[in-house]
Amino acid sequence: MMYLTMAVLCSVAVSVLLKILRQKQIDIRQTIVAGYPVAFLLTWFLLKPDLGAINTLGNAWGVIIALGIILPTVFILLGRAIEAVGMVATDAAQRLSLIIPIVAAFLLFGEVLTGTRVFGLALGFLALGALVYRPQSGSINKVAKNTPLWLLGVWLGYGIVDILFKQVAKHGTAFPLTLFVSFGLAGLLLFIYLLFTRVRWQGEALAAGLLLGALNMGNIYAYVRAHQVLSESPSIVFTGMNVGVIAVATLIGVGVFNETLNRVNIVGLLLAVCCVGVLFLA
Rank of each mutant, 00 (worst) to 15 (best):
T5R: 03
M6F: 13
V8A: 00
V8G: 02
V8Y: 00
C10W: 07
S11W: 06
V14M: 15
S15I: 00
S15P: 09
L18N: 05
L18R: 04
I20S: 02
L21Q: 14
Q23P: 04
K24R: 15
D27F: 08
Q30M: 11
I32P: 04
G35A: 08
Y36E: 10
V38N: 10
V38Y: 11
F40Q: 08
F40S: 06
T43N: 14
F45N: 02
L47I: 00
K48Q: 13
D50C: 01
G52M: 12
G52P: 01
W61D: 01
V63Y: 15
I65T: 08
I65D: 00
G68H: 12
G68W: 14
L71M: 14
P72S: 03
P72N: 09
L77D: 07
G79D: 06
R80D: 12
I82L: 12
A84T: 02
G86R: 06
G86Y: 09
M87C: 00
V88Q: 00
A89H: 10
T90A: 11
S97N: 09
L98I: 15
I99P: 05
I102D: 03
V103G: 03
A104W: 12
A104G: 03
E111A: 11
L123K: 08
G124C: 04
L131K: 11
V132S: 13
V132D: 11
V132W: 14
Y133C: 04
Q136K: 14
S139F: 15
I140N: 05
N141V: 14
V143Y: 09
K145I: 08
T147P: 00
L149H: 13
L152P: 07
G159N: 08
I163Q: 06
K166W: 10
Q167W: 12
Q167Y: 11
V168Y: 12
K170H: 12
K170C: 02
H171I: 00
H171W: 13
G172W: 12
A174D: 14
P176F: 09
L177I: 05
L179S: 07
S182P: 07
F183G: 07
A186T: 09
G187T: 03
G187S: 10
G187W: 12
L189E: 06
L190E: 13
L190G: 02
I192S: 01
L194R: 12
T197F: 05
R200N: 14
E204I: 08
E204T: 06
A208F: 13
A208M: 13
A208H: 09
L210V: 15
L211S: 07
L211D: 02
N219T: 08
P234R: 08
P234D: 09
I236K: 06
V237Y: 03
G240E: 09
G240W: 10
A247L: 15
A249N: 11
I252Q: 04
G253E: 00
V254P: 02
F257S: 05
F257M: 03
N258I: 02
E259F: 03
L261F: 02
N262T: 09
R263M: 11
V267G: 03
G268C: 05
L270V: 15
A272Q: 06
L279K: 06
